[in-house]
């Protein structure tokens, strides 16, 4: 993807998303335009119900906009089939969720290797890359542990390793510190910051917490389905 290298990580033009809730149309997004460059660290901030989660689902290609154009790493998503969209998620986007979303009875190593399963990577290579990703988040000694044997902070670091193992362009972190205490939260934020600085992956943080959002180099405030304030790209 030579064009992808130069294209912004995310480019959204006038995105809207309308839901039908029991027959009533709800406009979760009412025209959002946004550009996040390669390697940027941005936070989408807003109270609950502001539309920030809807925006994150769209940016993560988990959902399709009602109207508007969305390009992820230069790829226009509107024309893609379900399986092409899955492939785009697999190769371009890494997710970190508030509640970790680890498979409970699966070891850290296999949890981290999961995205590579859907990419058709062989078992030994998968395990090697998963081990390296766990090493990168400081869990090289926890490879065979199950989620229940780890602290919340460790679980979220496993989830970050899983998001990174496929070498995505964009890491979408949805309230990554929401279920963690201050110390573990700070540690997770430090890891995200380091990965962004060292690895060049664009990080998009979705949060309602101003303090967490302040860690990012750019803040995008969302309210009532619109961007209220964008501190702008540093680059």
């Amino acid at each position: 993807m030579t064009s992808g290298e130069r294209a912004p990580a995310i480019e959204a033009v006038d995105l809207t998303r309308r839901y039908q809730l029991e027959g009533v149309a709800v406009d979760a997004l009412r025209g959002v335009s946004l550009r996040i460059g390669q390697g940027e660290f941005a936070a989408i901030v807003g109270p609950s119900g502001s539309g920030k989660s809807t925006l994150m689902h769209l940016l993560g290609c988990l959902d399709r906009p009602t109207s508007g154009v969305l390009r992820v790493n230069g790829v226009e998503m509107s024309g893609l089939s379900e399986s092409r969209l899955a492939e785009l998620r697999n190769r371009t986007i890494g997710f970190v969720f508030q509640s970790f979303h680890l498979l409970a009875r699966t070891t850290a190593l296999d949890n981290v290797a999961l995205p590579l399963v859907y990419r058709g990577v062989g078992r030994s290579e998968r395990r090697a890359r998963a081990a390296a990703a766990l090493e990168a988040v400081g869990l090289g000694h926890r490879l065979e542990h199950r989620p229940s044997q780890m602290s919340g902070g460790e679980q979220q670091r496993v989830a970050i390793a899983r998001a990174l193992v496929g070498e995505p362009k964009v890491l979408l972190a949805d309230e990554p510190t929401g279920n963690l205490d201050t110390r573990n939260g700070a540690e997770v934020m430090a890891i995200l910051d380091r990965l962004n600085a060292d690895g060049g992956v664009a990080v998009v943080l979705v949060t309602h917490d101003q303090e967490i959002a302040a860690c990012a180099r750019r803040q995008i405030h969302v309210r009532d389905g619109l961007i209220e304030l964008d501190t702008g790209s540093a680059r």
Partner: peptide, 16 residues
């Protein structure tokens, strides 16, 4: 259901 959602987010296709 949550596991299925997660797998899809990680790149599982419908047919997977």
């Amino acid at each position: 259901t949550r596991e299925i959602g997660l797998r899809k987010a990680l790149g599982a296709r419908q047919r997977d």
